[in-house]
Amino acid sequence: MKMKNTSVLIMLLFILSACQTGVNDNATKEKIYTGETGLELEILDRSLPESVFEDERFDMVLKLTNKGAYPITAGDSILKITTEKDYMEIIEPKGSLPYIYSGSFDLDGKEKFQNTDDFEVKEFKLMSKRLDEQSQIHTVTILATVCYNYVTKAYADICIDTDVYNTKPIEKSCSAEQVSLNGGQGAPVAVTRIEPKMLSDGDSVKPQFVIYLRNTDRGSVIEYERINTICSKESPDRDDYNNVQLTDIRFSGYDRNDFRCEPDIAKLENEEDYIICTLQQGIPRSTPSYKTPLYLEFSYAYTLSEQVQLDIERMFS
């Protein structure tokens, strides 16, 4: 008996501690999946002189910060630094051409045990070239461009309201209402709101979700895994820009295969679009209304650039 009591106590403690962990999980999740930017690209002004003379070496420091919740691996990213061929060259790190650096970066997303932004500082050594004859000053532009694959993950508590017309004698626990998701999900494309609708289908209801998406960062959304095209001179395909693909939608044991989504790929024209996903299989009306977390996942690639200008001056003019 004593042994039984002890077991019950241990079990209770375990359950309680599990509850506690769950609360912490939600708080951490909230912190991780917040924000409207993915990668932040910054040319550190203080690292650059305002002007340089001809044939002068100088440093440029670039900071890449992953402010989002999704990791960017070297294979999923491209960084290109370009200068004006005739007036400047990149000494270190060496690229295939003296005025173009092409590389990648590897940055973790925010995680449970790492909720600070991962960043990478890249240092470039550049050198100005000679000015044209009789020229005394020339302004050069240095351009940094990144292209990276990214994912937006969104969680929202939605209500599966099986009593749309309130005909059941018992009070329902929730009703289908629009869910606003302010503050983003730690990615440059954010799910801004979800409008659940319960479509009647005989003795069942088919939950339908209108999911609104928006490009919340300053760059451009591109087709997932098309970074090599967009960050190069290659000809892009017709749908390479603005495409956001819904890769997962889940709730209460239903997954992506159970839904029919229209369109399958969102086109963020004017930086906004929406997708309507309907559960193909109905939920019996006899099921009581309930709240459940809806999980959404979108894949896309993103590009943004940053530029800085500096003057090359002739010495002793």
């Binding site: 290109k80 370009t82 004006e84 061929k85 005739d86 051409l97 173009i100 092409s102 532009t141 351009l143 461009t145 967009i230 960050c231 190069s232 001179k233």
Partner: peptide
């Protein structure tokens, strides 16, 4: 160049 915008003089 193998970048979207090539600058030349």
């Amino acid at each position: 160049d193998d970048i979207p915008v090539t600058t030349r003089y």
